[in-house]
Amino acid sequence: MTPVRSTSRRATARRFSLVDDARWVRVQRAALSGGVAAAIVAALRQAGVADGIGIWAATALAAVVGAALPVRTPARALLRWDGAQWWWQRAGEPLAVTPGVVIDLEQWMLLRLNAATDADGVRGRAPPERWIALSRRAHEAQWASLRLHLFLAAA
């Protein structure tokens, strides 16, 4: 008689209080401000108003300034696993989501939350996706449990 070896594991219900990583916010600001400055530089060059290396230095400066702006601490959001479904709540009513780990560097994770689809394949009424950058430093007390739940619930 062979023993029953069941590998089905269920992640227990759990709540995670999350906040975006400030460094990720700075990277986004640098990319946005550098992109806007590059578009302005391209328009100026096309018009023949400006030329030379100085305008590209201005683009780099805009990116540095965008990254250097202070980041205010955003309100914490709640990511909840109830044993069957993930829920995202920032302000107001909770939204059923399907989290996907896009990047996992053990010390830092990038999650993409998609609105969950119902039985008919129709998406929820909320925005289609939300990106969340998380760092181990900001979520030390719940980091191991969060990673475990994300990977066990997806299996």
Rank of each mutant, 00 (worst) to 15 (best):
M1W: 09
M1S: 12
R5M: 05
S6N: 09
T7K: 01
S8E: 13
A11N: 01
A11P: 13
R14W: 01
R14T: 13
R14H: 07
R15T: 10
F16W: 00
F16Y: 05
F16H: 02
S17E: 05
D21W: 05
D21S: 05
R26P: 01
V27A: 00
V27S: 01
Q28C: 03
Q28H: 03
A30R: 02
A30D: 01
A31E: 03
G34H: 08
G35T: 01
V36Q: 00
V36G: 05
V36W: 08
A37W: 04
A38M: 12
I40K: 03
I40F: 08
A43E: 02
A43D: 03
L44A: 10
R45S: 07
Q46W: 15
A47K: 06
G48V: 02
V49F: 05
A50T: 14
D51E: 14
D51S: 14
G52I: 01
I53Q: 06
I53K: 03
I55Q: 11
I55S: 07
A57K: 04
A57L: 15
A57C: 12
A57V: 11
A58L: 14
T59P: 00
T59D: 07
A60Q: 02
A60S: 09
A62T: 05
A63P: 04
G66P: 06
G66K: 07
G66M: 03
A67N: 06
A68E: 04
T73E: 06
A75T: 07
A75G: 06
L78T: 12
L79I: 06
R80G: 00
W81E: 09
W81L: 08
G83H: 06
A84Y: 11
A84K: 11
Q85C: 13
Q85Y: 03
Q85T: 15
Q85E: 12
W86M: 09
W87Q: 13
W88D: 09
W88E: 04
Q89P: 04
Q89K: 11
A91N: 10
A91S: 14
G92I: 02
G92S: 01
E93H: 14
E93S: 13
L95E: 14
A96T: 07
A96M: 11
V97R: 10
T98W: 10
T98F: 12
T98Y: 09
P99L: 04
G100Q: 09
G100A: 08
G100L: 06
G100D: 10
V101P: 09
V102H: 07
Q107N: 15
Q107D: 15
Q107W: 13
W108E: 14
M109F: 07
L111V: 10
L111K: 10
L111Q: 10
R112F: 05
R112E: 12
A115W: 03
D118M: 06
D118Y: 10
A119E: 15
G121L: 08
G121R: 13
G121M: 07
V122E: 14
V122D: 15
G124S: 09
R125T: 14
R125I: 01
A126S: 13
P127M: 02
P127D: 05
P127G: 03
P128D: 13
E129P: 00
L134E: 12
L134F: 08
S135N: 08
S135D: 11
R136K: 15
H139E: 04
E140H: 08
A141F: 00
Q142D: 08
Q142K: 02
W143C: 02
W143H: 03
A144T: 09
S145Q: 15
S145T: 10
R147Q: 15
R147F: 11
L148Q: 14
L150F: 07
F151C: 01
L152K: 06
A153K: 02
A155D: 08
A155T: 11
